[in-house]
Design a protein around this nucleic acid. Structure first.
Length: 192
DNA sequence: AGAGCGATTGCCT
DNA sequence: GGCAATCGCTCTG
């Protein structure tokens, strides 16, 4: 996934394009954690479910900035969620990463998940599960996703015929917008 | 200044 | 299936 694509594609197209790409996290002890993106959701400032719907605030500023950066927000008093900022600078659009298929460092991911994840299928199958597994918190808000210790790596694109779309999970307003995308039949998505 | 609530998860019945 | 945990952002007064 090149930055060029992230700023030129419409956000729902970017959400599709991010499927199959790899997310890599390098820990300070040198551990390398990697997962393939298998589920995403698109958010756009014209959409009532988006954090940017009511304009710019301190919290959502990164989402309105340039594409290719991480927008990490804190929710429910305990969880972090990771978004990839997309679109031209000045518009508030981003793609929420909802699930990863673990590829490297699963032992460390399991420790980061407080041993709550006993199986690979429960390691990164949710937006807050994967941030826990990859130790992603607010320090990565505004981080350039081209650079270590957290970056996107080119993966095999997923053909549209292998992508399923549905409505987004957990949103109230904008609930009918079918902007959740996942790899058809993949065992690592958040909800079967 | 303070109430209300959220792009969730895991435990309990 | 229901609900608590837990905190900071947002909006109202």
């Amino acid at each position: 996934m090149h930055r060029k694509h992230l700023c030129e594609l419409k956000v729902d197209e970017a959400a599709r394009a991010l499927l199959g790409q790899q997310l890599v996290r390098i820990l300070t002890d040198g551990s390398r954690l990697k997962g393939k993106i298998v589920e995403t959701e698109a958010y756009h400032e014209t959409d009532p479910a988006a954090h940017t719907y009511n304009g710019k605030t301190d919290r959502n500023a990164v989402m309105i900035g340039p594409a290719g950066y991480a927008y990490v927000y804190f929710v429910y008093g305990m969880h972090y969620c990771l978004n990839v900022v997309t679109g031209p600078e000045g518009t508030g659009e981003a793609v929420l990463i909802r699930a990863l298929e673990p590829k490297e460092g699963m032992d460390v991911m399991q420790q980061n998940r407080s041993l709550q994840a006993k199986t690979p299928g429960n390691m990164c199958s949710g937006p807050a599960k994967l941030t826990q597994a990859l130790a992603i918190d607010r320090q990565f808000n505004g981080h350039d996703l081209r650079s270590s210790p957290l970056y996107l790596k080119e993966g095999k694109p997923v053909a549209d015929t292998h992508i399923t779309r549905s409505t987004r999970v957990g949103v109230r307003s904008g609930a009918s917008t079918p902007w959740r995308f996942y790899i058809k039949g993949n065992a690592f998505i958040s909800k079967p």
